[in-house]
Design a protein around this nucleic acid. Sequence first.
DNA 1: GGCACGTGCTAAGTTATGTTTGCACGTGCA
DNA 2: TGCACGTGCAAACATAACTTAGCACGTGCC
Lengths: 103, 103
Amino acid sequence: MEAATVNGDEFVEVLATLSNPHRLRVVAALSQQRNYVSRLARELGISRALLQVHLRKLEAVGLVESQLELSEDGKAMKFYEVLDFAVALTPETIAEAVQTLTK
Amino acid sequence: MEAATVNGDEFVEVLATLSNPHRLRVVAALSQQRNYVSRLARELGISRALLQVHLRKLEAVGLVESQLELSEDGKAMKFYEVLDFAVALTPETIAEAVQTLTK
DNA sequence: GGCACGTGCTAAGTTATGTTTGCACGTGCA
DNA sequence: TGCACGTGCAAACATAACTTAGCACGTGCC
């Protein structure tokens, strides 16, 4: 679903977003099961505030998506899950991405 | 030539290195022809000092390599060229890389 | 009411990254 | 000698990124 006309700026954004250990762990964890913020924070051993920041970045570049759901006992819970993505990193794909760089 | 046992930390380093417009342009330019620092700086329209910093980072993570050569008129010139690399970025490859993260 | 659980936000501090500027040293040649 | 070209390095500044700490608000339940 990639390779076709990748925008250079998006390309950079995706790489920047994934070049963080916390965010990589988030993606890895969510790829095994969707999860809500507080629980994911506990499982990863990081603060909820920190996780939220990282989740927002991941969502901003389209690597994960979220939906607010109500639990049986009425709590509003925000579930996240990974979207399927595939980016190939080679000199060729980079040369192509560079063509549409604006920065 | 990748995929086999990628180290998580290296994974992060490579992504961090490539998440910069200047460095992407460097890789793109070098993938078309090897070049020496001063000339590449002129072609990219950036300062030599800046380019050197970026080249050093690219070389540090093994995306490019350099060799010092003497031109016909005796000048010491440092040539850079891209190394072949291929990194697949998917939820699966990320999940694998995370397993060997130390940071 | 008070506690446990969920959500959201942001100010403030620390740390990392990017960039400029300036200097040093070398060669060939008019 | 002086200029043009190549190299290298580092201090200093500006900017971006990361992280913590603290607050607000909501629900269910003892």
